[in-house]
């Protein structure tokens, strides 16, 4: 296996490193590449920003005029009904 890697391989390792620790060899390859490459350190930061954005996006509530409204009233009604049935059937002994 060669030591010098391309930007394509380096960016792949940058992504992988967000999810799991790299092997020692890969981590050395990546570090060496980031030292000599102008582009990949930027990509490194941008990928990390996307990672952070993903975490935030999950819990972001776009209730205020966002693209995704909440449950439709039909769905709410169906769910409420199934909950009431379930509660009715399993409620003996509570309270």
């Amino acid at each position: 296996m060669k030591f010098n890697i391309s930007c394509q391989e380096a960016s792949q390792l940058v992504s992988q490193q967000i999810d799991q620790p790299l092997s020692l060899m890969d981590s050395m390859r990546l570090r060496a590449h980031l030292l000599v490459c102008k582009a990949c350190p930027v990509v490194h930061r941008n990928f990390k920003a996307i990672h952070q954005a993903g975490l935030k996006y999950a819990l972001r509530d776009e209730a205020a005029g966002g693209a995704c409204p909440g449950l439709s009233s039909g769905a709410k009604g169906r769910i409420a009904k199934s909950l009431r049935q379930e509660k009715g059937s399993g409620d003996t002994g509570q309270l």
Binding site: A39, C40, V42, Q52, A53, K56
Partner: peptide, 19 residues
């Protein structure tokens, strides 16, 4: 074909400001 970026990569700036 050599696996180099075709276009220069630009920094995005501070993520917190972006968010």
């Amino acid at each position: 074909q050599r696996g180099e970026w075709v276009v220069p990569q630009r920094a995005w700036g501070d993520p917190d400001a972006m968010f």
